[in-house]
Amino acid sequence: MDRFEAMAVFVKVAESDSLSAAARGLGLSLTSVSRQITALEQRLGTQLVVRTTRRLALTEEGRLYHAQARRILAEVEEAEQALAAQQAEPAGRLHVGAPTLIGRLRLAPLLPEILGRHPRLDVDLTLTDRPVNLVEDGIDVAIRIGRQPDSSLIARRLGTLRMQVCAAPGYLARRGAPATPADLAGHDCLVFAEAPGAASWPFQMPEGRVMVPVSSRIRANSLDAVVAAALGGAGLVRAPSWQLADAVAAGRLVPVLTGYERPSTPVQALFLPNRLLSPKIRLFVDFLAERWGGGEFGPGTGPAA
Rank of each mutant, 00 (worst) to 15 (best):
M1G: 15
R3W: 12
F4P: 04
A8E: 13
A8R: 13
V9H: 04
S16N: 09
S16M: 10
S16V: 08
L19H: 00
L19P: 03
A23H: 06
A23T: 04
A23N: 05
G25D: 08
L28P: 01
S29D: 12
T31Y: 07
I37M: 09
L40R: 02
L44W: 10
G45A: 15
T46Y: 02
T46M: 13
V49Q: 06
R54C: 03
R55S: 10
A57E: 13
H66V: 12
I72C: 14
L73S: 11
E77T: 15
E77L: 09
E77R: 15
E78I: 08
L83R: 13
L83W: 06
L83A: 15
A84G: 02
A85R: 14
A85E: 14
A85W: 14
Q87S: 13
P90W: 14
A91V: 03
G92A: 15
P99C: 04
T100D: 05
A108P: 03
G116P: 11
G116W: 13
R120K: 08
L121K: 07
T128G: 10
R130L: 14
P131V: 05
V132Q: 05
N133A: 10
V135C: 06
D140W: 10
A142M: 10
I145C: 14
G146Y: 09
Q148H: 15
Q148R: 07
D150K: 01
L153R: 07
L153Q: 02
A155H: 15
R157V: 14
R157K: 14
G159Q: 13
T160E: 10
L161T: 14
M163D: 04
A167S: 06
A168Y: 06
G170W: 07
L172D: 08
D183V: 06
D183N: 04
L184F: 09
H187A: 04
F192G: 10
F192L: 14
E194P: 05
G197V: 03
A199D: 08
W201M: 04
W201V: 05
P202T: 03
M205S: 02
R209W: 07
V210Y: 08
M211L: 15
V212Y: 01
P213S: 01
I218C: 00
I218T: 09
I218G: 02
I218Y: 06
R219N: 13
A220W: 07
D224G: 07
A225I: 04
A229V: 11
A229P: 11
A230Y: 06
G233S: 01
V237D: 01
R238C: 07
P240F: 11
A245V: 12
A249D: 13
L253H: 00
V254C: 02
P255Y: 00
V256A: 00
V256Q: 09
G259N: 02
Y260A: 08
S264P: 12
P266A: 11
A269W: 05
L270Q: 02
F271R: 01
F271N: 00
P273M: 12
P273H: 02
N274Y: 13
N274C: 03
R275I: 03
K280E: 14
R282I: 07
L283H: 03
F287T: 02
L288I: 05
A289V: 11
A289P: 10
W292Q: 01
G294D: 12
G300H: 12
G300N: 12
G302I: 00
G302L: 07
A304L: 10
A305I: 03
